[in-house]
């Protein structure tokens, strides 16, 4: 295995990040993947230069505090690997709560995962006294607004931004564990990312929200 060898194959893995990792951040996930690939002894390619980094890329950063059934990671390899074998080797060295369930080969020339705009869906269980129809009405009323201004801190500075255009849809999924499940479809990408906790906060549903989870990521 040589650090300078060029990448000859790119594998895109679908994985789940479960309850035990709810509070593991995006950056921490990056480190987790690097270490898991080393434990699995995968021939990961490295960036060139003074400080070579493993070529591993994650899609749409998952906010800390959120689990996911729909994460993606790209691995660049210096030797061709059988995708199924890669999946098997990784699952053997991943901590409980991370599971790879899909793998596909992607052309080396395709754009980077991070650069792709995406549509992302989340779900959360919320408390709601009253019929589902009332909750649906609340969601519809939120969507009917022209703008929903929210505060955000960026590089230590407070600023305002409009959350409304980042949200495509809100709906009631059903009921679970005595709570209603609310679904959200938001944008993620260079033009702006809709944060699911912000959506729930502006709906007044955050305090009772539990089990916030990303359920789908649609690239492009």
């Amino acid at each position: 295995m040589s650090l300078d060898a060029p990448a000859v194959q790119r594998l895109r893995l679908d994985y789940a990040k479960g309850e035990p990792l709810r509070f593991v951040s995006h950056l921490d996930m990056m480190r987790l993947w690097e270490r898991a690939c080393r434990r699995a002894r995968l021939p990961i390619a490295h960036t060139q230069g003074f400080n070579p980094r493993p070529r591993i890329a994650l899609a749409c950063p998952l906010p800390t505090g959120v689990t996911s059934r729909a994460e993606k990671v790209d691995l660049f390899l210096t030797t061709r690997m059988d995708p199924r074998e890669t999946l098997r080797r990784l699952n053997a060295v991943l901590p409980t709560g991370v599971e790879v369930f899909g793998v596909a080969e992607v052309a080396l020339t395709e754009p980077a995962l991070m650069s792709l705009p995406a549509t992302v869906e989340y779900q959360a269980r919320v408390e709601w006294d009253g019929p589902a129809a009332d909750l649906e009405a609340r969601l519809r009323a939120w969507l009917a607004q022209d703008s929903v201004m929210r505060q955000r801190e960026r590089k230590g500075r407070a600023g305002e931004y409009d959350l409304r255009p980042l949200v495509e849809h809100l709906w009631v999924v059903g009921q679970s564990e005595g709570r209603f499940v609310v679904g959200m479809r938001v944008k993620s990408g260079p033009q702006g990312t809709g944060r699911p906790d912000e959506v729930l906060k502006s709906l007044g549903l955050w305090d009772s929200a539990r089990g916030l989870e990303r359920t789908a990521v649609m690239l492009g």
Partner: peptide, 8 residues
Amino acid sequence: GRYTGGEW
């Protein structure tokens, strides 16, 4: 993440 365990 200090309080959740589950590490490899």
